[in-house]
Design a protein around this nucleic acid. Sequence first.
DNA 1: CCGTCCCACCCAGTAAACCC
DNA 2: GGGTTTACTGGGTGGGACGG
Length: 315
Amino acid sequence: MRADRLVKLVLLLRHHKMLSATALAAELEVSPRTVLRDVEALSTAGVPVYAERGRNGGFALLPGFQTELTGLNHDEALALLIAGSRRGAQVFGLGSALASAMLKVADALPESYRHTAAGKARRLLIDPDTDLLERRTTAEEIPDALVTEIRRAVFNGHKLRINYTAKNQKPQWRTIDPIGLVTVKDQGYLLATKDGADRTYRLSRIKAAEELDCPANRPEHVDLGKAWQDRGTRFRTGGEQTTVTLRLDPAKRSQLLDTALTVTTEDDRLTATFQDAWHAEWALWQLGTSAEALSPQWLRTKLRDRAAAIVTRYG
DNA sequence: CCGTCCCACCCAGTAAACCC
DNA sequence: GGGTTTACTGGGTGGGACGG
């Protein structure tokens, strides 16, 4: 822990030229007092760190000092492997590991590349938290300790006991055989089997997890991408799909295409299929007065009741 | 002169390792 | 199991150096 922090301290000083003890403390998530001790430890170890007193002072390294830091720790290597999704690292509880790994990667670059690479990186934004139309849901915050426990069971190939709250149900403990972790549009999922049957759990709905000291029943090799695709296909084609006939403002057609499984047009009417009744209701509600559900009747009733409830609430 | 920041003490709490 | 040691960390205080 401390060794990691000392490395990070040196890297921070290399990148910022000079930082006060308070600023370093904030970066390292320790007290300024601890920073002073760490600086002293570095100095004792022969790292040429010096203090600049007074206003705008702080700690700095002698110019030209080159670190010879090699090796990433386990979590940092893991974070880089899944760095294709920055949010993925966050969802899997590896956000801070990714940040520190990136610092090491940047530090490993030759001086001439370092500035140009950092400059270019600042001009790219991958997978931001919201799009311009704010269609995406806000990212879910899942405690690191919880994800770490789940991740450990996945990697160790051990059974996992989770307290899971399924939709419209009470929280319940269940023992599962974890297969892998997936993130899709900021949502984290745990692929697993329970009593031999495929199961997919949303990480945000897992309230507690406990790795069991017992090997999980899982295939030797798993193509996670294919497994996810298979489950998605089954999800879309299975269950009780709902077909809706509606009129729609043509300008809103793309919004409907985003939520419906299929959409066909006939004269001025559209027929849309949704994966279930709830999604159909939600999609039509989102379209507001730009759409009118013509059938089924129960959907018209649901939308009318919703609107009436809103009118009652706001007078 | 005053605010900022480092320096050097002291003391105390916590967790892990070690020993009996 | 319980006591001791060690490492690490945090809080507090007074002082010195420096710059505006």
